[in-house]
């Protein structure tokens, strides 16, 4: 199988408002992919389509080779799904919920679940609804990993988690995926947590794929340069493959994109921006994300 997930020309609208405009991408086996985007970029719509909770207006998604709208029970058993907000059944306690889920999965590995639960300071009879968000996240994660799925979809795993639980969550995922056989798709707004974890990066912007490449490639080929302008600088957002951005800041303005320093010089001169002291600035994944999608939600 070439891809564990394959989205083909996905289009979906809510009324007159388009959410996805012909989105296509794929996830290869054994890779961890970060699906990033601002609020309303189309991530949740995509996740809902992937999990067959939404039928797209057009296009299709294949999960482990099957159409997402008609997943067979055996394929579903191979897909773990963390719902946004670590949603689980609050009326169960940790033992009851393990008993419930274990009967559905042939490859159920209770030791993974119990290992995660043993780290939490909870009474085994405590109801999940009375747990903190961080504790619930570990219960939900334990239940998913115990299924021994081939593909896991984490929809906004960081929602409501403090830094400690976020780190714990990432560490557990990293260990689980270490053998390189598990494929993971994850969305999050805490992009700095994903740095060094994800292999591939897909960035959505206004319902379209802005960037789809290995995370390392993004971090090494997307450059940000600052410069001292000699006059006023007009902001610019290019649509081409360079993803050129020019922004005016207080003292030093910035130009960024998939460009080298010589190209940056050329682009500035071509736009009539007189400047001096152009220098490369270190950029994290979050910096790159902000540079690509903008600080403000403009439509």
């Amino acid at each position: 199988m070439d891809s564990v997930i394959e989205c083909r020309q996905l289009c979906h609208s809510y009324g007159n408002k388009p959410a996805l405009k012909g989105v296509s991408w794929s996830l290869r086996p054994g890779r961890i992919c970060g699906l990033l985007g601002r609020n309303g970029a189309g991530k949740t719509t995509t996740i809902n389509i992937l999990n067959s909770f939404l039928s797209p207006d057009s296009g299709s998604c294949l999960l482990l080779g099957e159409d997402s709208r008609m997943l067979s029970p055996s394929t579903k058993a191979r897909i773990g799904y963390l719902i946004e907000g670590h949603v689980q059944y609050g009326f169960f306690n940790v033992s009851q919920i393990e008993r419930f889920y274990s009967s559905f999965y042939d490859k159920w590995d209770a030791s993974i679940y119990h290992h995660l639960i043993s780290r939490l300071d909870i009474d085994p009879r405590q109801k999940i609804s009375t747990m903190s968000c961080g504790q619930r996240s570990q219960v939900a994660l334990g239940l998913i990993l115990a299924q021994s799925p081939d593909l896991i979809v984490f929809d906004d795993y960081s929602m409501g988690l403090d830094p400690g639980y976020r780190r714990l969550f990432i560490d557990v995922i990293r260990d689980y995926a270490a053998n390189g056989k598990r494929s993971i798709l994850m969305t999050s707004h805490i992009i700095q947590d994903l740095e060094g974890l994800i292999d591939d990066c897909i960035i959505y912007h206004r319902g379209e794929v802005l960037v789809d490449c290995p995370a390392k490639e993004l971090e090494t080929s997307y450059k940000s340069y600052s410069f001292v302008p000699n006059g006023p600088v007009e902001g610019f957002r290019g649509e081409g493959p360079e993803h050129l951005r020019i922004e005016q800041h207080n003292k030093r303005s910035a130009i960024s994109g998939f460009i080298s320093s010589s190209v940056a010089e050329e682009r500035l001169l071509a736009r009539g921006v007189e400047h001096s002291n152009l220098r490369e600035e270190p950029a994290s994944l979050e910096d790159i994300f902000i540079a690509l999608t903008g600080k403000y939600q403009t439509r």
């Binding site: 579903k76 719902i83 009326f91």
Partner: peptide, 18 residues
Amino acid sequence: MPELRDRRLRLVLHLPIG
């Protein structure tokens, strides 16, 4: 009603049964 809070029914619909 509990299945609708946070659209929990998705958990049931994702179980490996039809």
